[in-house]
Design a protein around this nucleic acid. Structure first.
Length: 100
DNA sequence: CGAGTGACTGCCA
DNA sequence: TTGGCAGCCACTC
């Protein structure tokens, strides 16, 4: 286990910092906790994330939502997140730390 | 120890 | 701007 248990905790902590109406990428979360390149581990951390976590505000670099999880897109839309014509999140407009 | 997999990422056409 | 391909890293069989 190269990845410490704190990894998931750190990811969840960063995810909890994501403001409503904004979205972050797995790579961004991994980078913010000081572990760039571990985006896949970040995704796995969200896969086992608790319900109280706004994991729906996390998408991949393409702005795509999690497979097998259609509610995520609806939750983001309810937060005020904008979407592109293809149904992907508009990271250029709703991306976290991309505005302020 | 080797091969396969995934809520990923970056480059090229 | 969009779609296809290869690389990455840890977990599982």
């Amino acid at each position: 286990m190269k990845i410490p248990a704190d990894f998931d905790a750190e990811i969840w902590s960063v995810v909890a910092e994501i403001p409503a109406g904004r979205v972050a990428t797995y790579g961004q979360l991994a980078r913010l906790i000081g572990m760039p390149g571990h985006a896949r581990r970040a995704g796995r951390a969200l896969a086992m994330a608790p319900e109280g976590l706004p994991c729906h505000r996390v998408v991949n670099s393409q702005g795509r939502t999690a497979p097998g999880w259609t509610g995520q897109r609806e939750l983001l839309a309810a937060e005020g997140v904008r979407f592109r014509a293809n149904g992907c999140v508009d990271l250029s407009a709703s991306g976290w730390e991309e505005i302020g």
